[in-house]
Amino acid sequence: MNEQQQQQQTKELNGPFGSVTCVKFSPDGTKIMLASDNKTIQLWDGQFEKQIQIMKGHVYAVNDAQFSPDGNTIVSCSSDKTIKFWDVHTGMEIRTLEGHTSRVISVQFSPDGTTLASGSWDQTIRLWDVHLAKEIALLEGHSEEVNCVRFSSNGQMIVSASGDRTIGIWRVKSGERVHTLTGHFESVLRAQYSLDSRVIVSCSKDETIRIWDATSGNQLKKLKGHIGVITDLQLSSDGRTIVSCSQDNSVRLWDMNLGMQIQKLISHSHPVTGIDISPDGNTIVSSSEDGTFRLWRGL
C-alpha cells in the first residue's frame, strides 16, 4: 500500500454490545464474531447485516474468543476463570474447561486445531487437548498476568505477552521457554508471529509497536505514532502491513519493512478496542468503546 491509497469505510454498526473485547473474522470471511464484557459472544454475517447467533453461558466478561481453523467452533475465555467451546452453527455450548485460578485473558487454537493455548491473570499458560478436553501442559515463568498467547504457523512454538513487560517464546513440545524478549517498559498486551514465523510483532501500554527476530530474540524496529495505549494489532497475510488500534481513537497502518506509518484512520469517537483483517486481506473490522463497529476496505 502506498501513501495515496485510502481505506474506504463501507459499514458502520451501532448497538448495545457492552465493551467489546475482541472482534474476529471467521476463517472463510463470511462471519464476524464479537466478544464482550456483557458476558456474550455474538456472531454476525460478514457485512454486519444480520445477527446469526448469540452465545450465552459465561457469568463474567468474555475477554477473548477465537474460531477453530475449520470455522465450526468458537472458543472463549472469561473473567469467570473458564474456557468454553461453542458450536458455530447452533450457538450451543459444547464443553467447559476449568483449571486456571484467575481470569482467563487469551485463547488460541493451534493451526491443526488439536491443541488450545490459554493465558491468565494467574501468570500461567496452559495447553489443552481439544478432543480429550483436558490440560496437557502448564507453562510457568511470567511474573505478572499473561495478556496474550499465539501459536507460530507450524504450531511448534508459542509467543506470550505479559504484564511483566516481557514477551516469552516457548517450545510447545517440551514447554521450554527458549527466549525472553525485553524492551517494552510497560505491560505488553499483544504479541504474534508473522505467517513465516521469522518475525514477532508486539504492542504495549508504552504506546509502541516493536518488531523482533523470532530466532535470535533481537529487537529489529520500534514504531511510534499512537498517543495512548495500543490495544490490539494484526499482521496482513503477505507480511507487509501491521494494523494497530489504540485508546487514541485511531486505527493505523504501518509498513513492516520500512518501519513507518503509512495511514491513519480516524472515525471512532472513543478508544478502539479491537481489530481484525479479513482472510482475503481486503477488509479491516474495528470495534470501539463508542459502541460502533466499522468495516474498512482497501488494505
Results as ranks from 00 to 15, higher is better:
268 H>K: 05
191 A>N: 00
15 G>V: 11
243 V>K: 09
133 A>T: 05
5 Q>I: 15
14 N>V: 14
231 T>C: 14
118 S>P: 04
271 P>K: 00
258 L>C: 06
190 R>A: 01
120 S>C: 06
176 E>H: 02
113 G>Q: 10
59 V>L: 15
110 S>R: 07
180 T>Y: 05
83 I>A: 05
196 D>L: 01
111 P>V: 14
3 E>R: 10
20 V>L: 08
280 D>A: 07
254 W>T: 12
176 E>K: 12
24 K>G: 04
114 T>I: 10
92 M>C: 11
277 I>E: 04
146 V>A: 07
246 S>L: 03
276 D>Y: 05
108 Q>N: 11
156 Q>K: 14
6 Q>V: 11
44 W>D: 04
287 S>H: 01
204 S>P: 13
133 A>P: 08
87 D>Y: 04
290 D>T: 02
136 I>G: 08
50 K>C: 05
114 T>G: 05
227 I>V: 15
188 V>Q: 02
293 F>P: 02
64 D>V: 03
118 S>K: 05
187 S>M: 14
265 L>S: 04
121 W>Q: 13
150 R>T: 10
111 P>E: 09
172 V>A: 13
264 K>A: 11
256 M>R: 10
284 I>P: 02
221 K>V: 00
16 P>Y: 06
20 V>D: 03
168 G>A: 03
273 T>Y: 07
223 L>C: 05
6 Q>H: 09
268 H>P: 05
252 R>F: 12
190 R>I: 04
271 P>M: 01
105 I>R: 15
251 V>I: 15
3 E>T: 09
271 P>I: 07
299 L>S: 11
125 I>T: 07
139 L>Q: 06
153 S>F: 09
36 S>A: 02
75 V>E: 02
84 K>M: 14
239 G>E: 04
70 D>L: 09
236 S>N: 09
223 L>N: 01
41 I>H: 03
208 T>N: 02
27 P>W: 03
22 C>T: 13
202 S>D: 07
98 E>Y: 00
58 H>L: 00
43 L>E: 12
252 R>S: 08
284 I>T: 08
24 K>P: 06
82 T>A: 13
177 R>I: 11
257 N>Y: 11
207 E>C: 11
221 K>W: 07
269 S>R: 14
157 M>I: 13
65 A>R: 02
112 D>G: 01
32 I>Y: 12
288 S>G: 06
124 T>I: 03
58 H>W: 03
78 S>Y: 04
129 D>T: 14
67 F>K: 01
196 D>P: 05
113 G>T: 09
290 D>F: 12
113 G>Y: 13
10 T>K: 10
134 K>C: 13
19 S>E: 15
296 W>Y: 01
57 G>N: 00
133 A>Q: 00
247 Q>F: 09
144 E>T: 10
198 R>W: 03
266 I>L: 15
208 T>R: 06
215 T>E: 14
283 T>F: 08
3 E>Q: 10
200 I>W: 10
270 H>I: 14
186 E>C: 13
214 A>W: 08
208 T>M: 00
125 I>E: 12
20 V>E: 08
245 C>V: 07
139 L>N: 08
208 T>L: 00
233 L>T: 09
99 G>H: 02
187 S>I: 15
156 Q>Y: 02
283 T>M: 11
60 Y>D: 15
261 Q>W: 10
